[in-house]
Structures are given as C-alpha cells and as structure tokens.
C-alpha cells in the first residue's frame, strides 16, 4: 500500500496544472509552484479588479472568496486552490445585476480613491453570508478590520454594508442567496 511514488507530484521550478472554478467557470491553468493567487489573477488571467496593496496580508485590497470565505489572495499559492471555488470582484454581479453590496457602495458613496473598494466589497459580501458574525455595527467594524482604507471612507463603508444587508436578507428569503459563489 505504501507507494512512495504516489506521495507527490514533484516539480521544482516546473509548471503545475491547476484545476479550479473561477467566478463560476471551470478552469485549467499551468502555474509555477511559487505563483501567488493574486499575481495569477492579475497577470495571467488579466482580472485587474483584485488589487495589490501591501502584498503581505496587512491591507485586504487583494481579498477574494475561496469556497465562500474571504481570504487574502496575496498569501495564497495558486496551486493551493486546486478543486476550489474562487470568486473575485468580477464575479460578484450576476446577469447584469449588481450584488447588493456593489449597489449600496454606489448609493452610499463608500469610497474615495477606490483602490481598496473591491477588497472591501469582497469582505462585505462574505460577511453578509456568514451567520456567525454579529449584525450590529461593532461586529461589522471588527469583521471588516482586515480591510484598510487610507482615504478613511469607513463611515460610509459601514453604512453601505448595513444597507446592503436589507437587500441581501430579502434576496436570501427568496432562496437565491449564495449564488455568487458559483456553487449552484
């Protein structure tokens, strides 16, 4: 039963095959073992919505969903996403209809320069879908603390999230919540 050759697919500096689902679409890519998810999204797939800020997990500009959970794409190897569902800001809207978070960010003017906005919206949309996070302002602020906005648009971001919650809950009651993960 112990077959050492089955232990791994070694390939120093060689390409690895990655099968994953991106914004609802099954995809196969050749990536380097040290390719970071953020760089693959931006440089290889030309999806520029996910931003590089600090590149060390400190700012949240690179936030994406991996199997529905908000994660820093700058600290994740692309090869680690084998078999997973990745959603970027490009996958948040559906059939031309903005996600409630996108609509409320527009209506509440929840950004200034906009560089952190896609990361803010990815954290916000994951937060609304996570019943373990409290609904009050303090809980939302705490849950959003991994997304830094150097313009200081926090007040409007909080307002936008709480406004989006109303629309999101109404959508969830109609039984169509969770569709943004492309898992349906």
């Amino acid at each position: 039963m112990m077959d050492d050759s089955a232990h791994s697919q070694h390939s120093r500096e060689s390409q690895q095959t990655l099968n994953f689902t991106l914004n609802g679409e099954a995809m196969t890519l050749e990536v380097a073992p040290n390719a970071v998810l953020l760089d693959v999204l931006r440089e290889q797939l030309h999806l520029g919505g996910t931003k590089k800020g600090c590149d060390h997990g400190q700012c949240g500009a690179c936030t994406v969903h991996v199997d529905g959970q908000a994660m820093n794409s700058c600290l994740r190897l692309a090869v680690m996403c084998e078999g997973q569902h990745v959603t970027t800001v490009e996958g948040l809207a559906h059939d031309g209809e903005l996600h409630p978070v996108q609509q409320s960010f527009l209506e509440c003017d929840a950004y200034q320069c906009g560089y952190c906005t896609s990361g803010q919206m990815m954290s916000a949309s994951a937060l609304l879908a996570d019943g373990r996070i409290g609904r009050d302002d303090a809980s939302v602020k705490e849950a959003m603390s991994g997304n830094i906005c150097r313009c200081g648009a926090y007040k409007n971001i909080l307002e936008a999230i709480q406004q989006a919650r109303l629309a999101y809950d109404a959508t969830a009651e109609r039984g169509t919540a969770g569709r943004q993960e492309g898992a349906a």
């Binding site: 050492d4 232990h7 070694h10 120093r12 500096e13 073992p33 040290n34 190897l77 680690m80």
Partner: peptide, 27 residues
C-alpha cells in the same frame, strides 16, 4: 522558487520531508 507537493497521508508527510522542506497549511 521551491518545489511543491501535496501530502496524501500523515505518515508519508512526516517521513518524506527533508530538513529544508516546510509544511504549508494556511501559509
């Protein structure tokens, strides 16, 4: 650059690594 592999059992993960290898989970 580094080599990358996926461990498929605890025993093999513990046996097959070299001193300059590192386990990665969350990363």
């Amino acid at each position: 650059t580094f080599a990358y592999s996926r461990a498929d059992s605890v025993e093999r993960a513990a046996h097959a690594t070299t001193p300059t290898a590192a386990f990665v989970a969350g990363g």
